[in-house]
């Protein structure tokens, strides 16, 4: 009960926060992308955190979502909302197909296989010019502003959609974590043979997690490009920009916890923007160097993520023990 009250308070504060920012300014844009990255990291967290399968290929699903809704809009005039659902289906199917050969792999092998899958998708999108427009990129065409058209004059509605997306992915994550599937995924993570012997269909449960994670990631791809307006294969299928960043957000925040991806996103995404703002006019690459150094320090300081800071603070106030 207490948790739900805390959750409600956070959501209300999050809804008020954008109103404090300049509606045409730069920071509301950063906030919107931060929220989307938090949601993406939450989707990643289902397979990366609960099943402990470190995917470095989630850009594949993200890009599939981005291109599905955009192509349906460009070629058939379908609303991006419908495109988002279609993209979710394609993302889920892609996750299913890639999960069948990769889910027997563990640790680094799984990470490398998924990384390769993301890169393959990037190459395909670059080469298949008739479908994607190729390396030249694609713009979201103008539609008359309305909610049904997913087209707005201001950024603010996008920000609220991003908040809704984060709330929904977080609730899905919590629902999975607390339900039968969460127990099964933890069992598989810790001892796959024992999990089978006590009656868990390990193949099926891992597939379910992969499909949910991939489908959510694809839907978030639609939301992202609706804000970004212009994109190309190298952006949406980017290993560094999407796949690794999403994993990094979840890992730095606290892998396998619901709050982790949110803490991680609100640290990493604004920090990266600040570094760019402060140092981009000085030596080339300096901003990335400093950003990288900060990440290293944080990982050394809190190897299990920011969530541990939270826990030790709570322990201090309640007199309990930190976990």
């Amino acid at each position: 009960m207490k948790r739900w009250i805390a959750f409600a308070i956070v959501v209300v504060v999050a809804c008020l926060l954008p109103l404090a920012l300049d509606p045409r300014g730069y920071w509301i844009r950063v906030l919107t992308f931060t929220l989307l990255f938090a949601a993406m990291a939450q989707a990643w967290n289902i397979i990366g955190g609960l099943a402990n399968q470190t995917s470095l290929g989630h850009a594949a699903f993200f890009g599939i979502g981005a291109y599905t809704s955009t192509i349906l809009l460009l070629k058939f005039g379908l609303s991006p909302w419908i495109g988002m659902v279609a993209g979710g289906v394609f993302g889920g199917v892609a996750a299913f197909i890639i999960a069948i050969p990769t889910m027997r792999l563990q640790g680094h092998y799984f990470a490398l296989a998924t990384l390769a899958f993301g890169e393959v998708m990037r190459v395909i999108a670059n080469v298949w010019v008739s479908l994607t427009g190729g390396p030249g990129g694609t713009s979201i065409p103008f539609s008359p502003p309305s909610f049904a058209n997913y087209s707005f004059k201001l950024l603010l509605p996008h920000t609220y959609i991003a908040i809704a997306a984060l709330v929904i992915t977080t609730l899905i994550f919590e629902w999975i974590q607390r339900g039968a599937m969460g127990y099964r995924l933890r069992a598989i993570k810790e001892n796959p043979s024992a999990a089978e012997v006590i009656g868990i269909d390990t193949t099926r449960v891992k597939l379910q997690a992969a499909v949910i994670s991939g489908a959510l990631m694809a839907m978030l791809g639609t939301l992202y490009v609706q804000v970004a307006v212009f994109f190309d294969p190298d952006t949406v299928f980017s290993a560094a920009g999407i796949s690794i960043r999403v994993a990094l957000v979840a890992i730095l925040g606290g892998i396998g916890t619901a709050i982790g991806p949110i803490l991680g996103a609100f640290f990493i995404i604004p920090l990266e923007e600040l570094m760019n703002e402060w140092f981009s006019s000085s030596a080339a690459g300096l901003s990335q160097l400093i950003f990288g150094l900060i990440l290293i320090v944080v990982i050394l300081w809190r190897p299990h993520g920011f969530v541990t800071v939270f826990r030790s603070l709570r322990a201090k106030f309640t007199g309990g023990t930190a976990r």
Partner: peptide
């Protein structure tokens, strides 16, 4: 069967270990 060298889900609580097996025939 049980495992000779004991194969528990070590990070989970005792109750959660056993509960997970109960999911074979019951809801949570």
């Amino acid at each position: 069967k049980t495992f000779q060298n004991v194969a528990l889900f070590g990070e989970s609580s005792v109750l959660d270990n056993v509960l997970t097996a109960g999911l074979l025939r019951h809801d949570v």
